[in-house]
């Protein structure tokens, strides 16, 4: 059972994202940017955004160092946020936060939920939830306070 929880946490999709993060790097002419920091482990992530006038995420990148969970989460986040409206992005984030805490995430559109479900294993590891949410909180900081 223990091993199952670990296998679920460190399943191939997650390890793949952490080893080969998508949208990794900085973004020239980012409209928004924020740095996130997890004081527990010293992990850092920077999220760069290009938001359209109406708030749509037209481009997104991240860079940073961290554990497999935080890197995979950041990578998946950039994959999923690109092209979303502000409203869709907020909904996705709320759904994600519910999911990793083991709470009801039925608000998420079905295909989003299916994609994010690989992160659901984290709910069995409460000490690691912050690793998974670091990039998302940083994204939100970038939107709210990170206009460049």
């Amino acid at each position: 059972m223990t091993d199952n929880a670990l296998r679920e946490l460190y399943q191939e999709v997650i390890l793949d994202h952490s080893r080969h993060p998508r949208h990794y790097g900085s973004l020239d002419h980012a409209s928004h940017k924020a740095e996130g920091y997890n004081p527990l482990c010293g992990d850092k992530v920077t999220v760069y955004l290009k938001l359209d006038a109406d708030g749509r995420v037209s481009d997104i990148k991240f860079e940073g160092k961290g554990c497999a969970i935080s890197q995979a989460s950041a990578s998946m986040m950039t994959d999923m946020l690109k092209g979303r409206t502000a409203e869709e992005a907020e909904k996705l984030m709320q759904g994600f936060l519910h999911l990793v805490k083991g709470e009801d995430a039925s608000d998420l559109p079905e295909d989003d939920r299916e994609r994010l479900e690989v992160m659901g294993g984290i709910s069995e590891f409460p000490m690691r939830v912050k690793c998974a949410t670091l990039a998302w909180h940083t994204y939100r900081n970038a939107v709210e306070e990170g206009a460049t």
């Binding site: 929880a5 460190y10 482990c41 961290g66 554990c67 969970i69």
Partner: peptide, 20 residues
């Protein structure tokens, strides 16, 4: 990463510190 390592060790009953 130290945190991933510590999580796996933890499930083996082994408590180590991971971080800065």
């Amino acid at each position: 990463h130290a945190h991933d390592l510590a999580t796996i060790l933890d499930r083996e009953g082994v408590a180590v510190r991971a971080g800065h």
